[in-house]
Structure formats: structure tokens, C-alpha cells
């Protein structure tokens, strides 16, 4: 889609990227360890290939990530 900022046909300017500023703001309020944990958790469940990992394994990995985030 035209989400990119590249020029469209005939050099017509396309729509700029939609900014999800409020989500970024919310995450910036968190400490670094929490931000890392958040990314790890989402990567476990949302990223492509997440379905290839079993639920119990994902829970174990999440638990481990939580413990790592505590230092």
C-alpha cells in the first residue's frame, strides 16, 4: 500500500506513514528492562513463526524473560 513515503505515479506525493505516537509514548515511560520484556513477549507470540512454538514452550520462555528482566 501507499504507506511508504515514496513518490507515487507521475511523482504524485503519497500519504505519509501513520504515526502510532501514543503507543511509543507509553513504552517510553517504562524502564529499559520493561521495554525489553515487552518486546520479547510480543516477539514470542506475534512475530511470524510464533505458531511453530508450542504454548508450554512459549510460557517457559516468557517466564524466563520475566526473570531475566529482574536482573
Amino acid at each position: 500500500m501507499s504507506g511508504s513515503s515514496s513518490s507515487g505515479p507521475k511523482g504524485k506525493s503519497r500519504k505519509g506513514e501513520v504515526q502510532l505516537g501514543s503507543l511509543v509514548g507509553l513504552l517510553e515511560e517504562q524502564d529499559k528492562a520493561m521495554r525489553v520484556l515487552f518486546a520479547k513477549a510480543l516477539n514470542l507470540y506475534v512475530s511470524p513463526g510464533a505458531d511453530e512454538t508450542s504454548d508450554s514452550e512459549k510460557l517457559d520462555r516468557l517466564k524466563k524473560a520475566i526473570e531475566e528482566s529482574l536482573g
Binding site: 502510532l20 503507543l23 511509543v24 518486546a39 510480543l42
Partner: peptide, 13 residues
């Protein structure tokens, strides 16, 4: 598409 690129910037793929 925007969600994907911005999440990527936050380390989420």
C-alpha cells in the same frame, strides 16, 4: 504497515 514498521523500531518483529 505503519504498525509493523514502528513496532520494528521498538524491537518487535
Amino acid at each position: 504497515k505503519s504498525l509493523h514498521s514502528q513496532m520494528k523500531a521498538l524491537g518487535v518483529g
